[in-house]
């Protein structure tokens, strides 16, 4: 069946929503380890050689006194990915176990993780900018590390996971007591 107006095929729910979302989510969770353990950036200057992971980058900002930027990067790179993986796993589990609790809040939770997810790309862009900018032959050079690739993959995978999830599944389990009739 196709929509009379826009021509896309109509389906009750996104096809294979739960299986697809789990697949993207598990891949994201596995890559989350190298993304955080491997360096995302290697800096060499006359004085030092340094390799930074996501967390040590945040710590360096904090030590330099830029605590506000450190918090922003920490939220975008650490809090948001963990929150997103956790929330989507919770939603999948609750849908699969036929949960009836707090549907409205769960739908809101879904919208929040979908809304904030792309901000995690922040550190990927920072790496690209610094690699492009810092090439001073003898003084300083910045090279990207393998963690940056893993981290970019994590962000893309969590975005695909939240796009594959169908929030209407939350409402599919009939309530024990009849829900309030939708008002017009």
């Amino acid at each position: 069946m196709r929509c009379r107006r826009c021509g896309t095929s109509i389906h009750r729910r996104k096809p294979e929503s739960i299986a697809r979302t789990w697949a993207f989510l598990i891949a994201a969770a596995i890559l989350y380890l190298p993304a955080n353990l491997l360096p995302i950036m290697l800096t060499s200057t006359l004085l030092e050689q340094r390799s930074d992971t996501i967390l040590s980058g945040v710590a360096a900002l904090w030590r330099d006194g830029a605590w506000d930027i450190a918090i922003i990067v920490f939220v975008a790179s650490v809090v948001v990915p963990i929150l997103k993986i956790g929330v989507i796993a919770l939603l999948l589990w609750s849908v699969q176990s036929g949960a009836r609790w707090r549907r409205s809040e769960r739908t809101r939770l879904y919208r929040i993780v979908e809304f904030v997810g792309h901000w995690s790309m922040l550190d990927v862009f920072v790496v690209a900018l610094l690699v492009g900018l810092v090439h001073f032959r003898s003084f300083a050079d910045v090279q990207p590390g393998p963690g940056a690739v893993a981290f970019a993959a994590v962000v893309v995978l969590t975005m695909l996971a939240s796009m594959s999830f169908d929030p209407r599944l939350i409402w599919d389990v009939p309530a024990k007591n009849l829900p309030p009739a939708p008002k017009s």
Partner: peptide, 21 residues
Amino acid sequence: GAVLSSYDAGVGLVAVVSAAC
């Protein structure tokens, strides 16, 4: 400059994601 440097430095995914997004 950022996209091409990342590509040359061997992190293709970083370059591709940056250019795309």
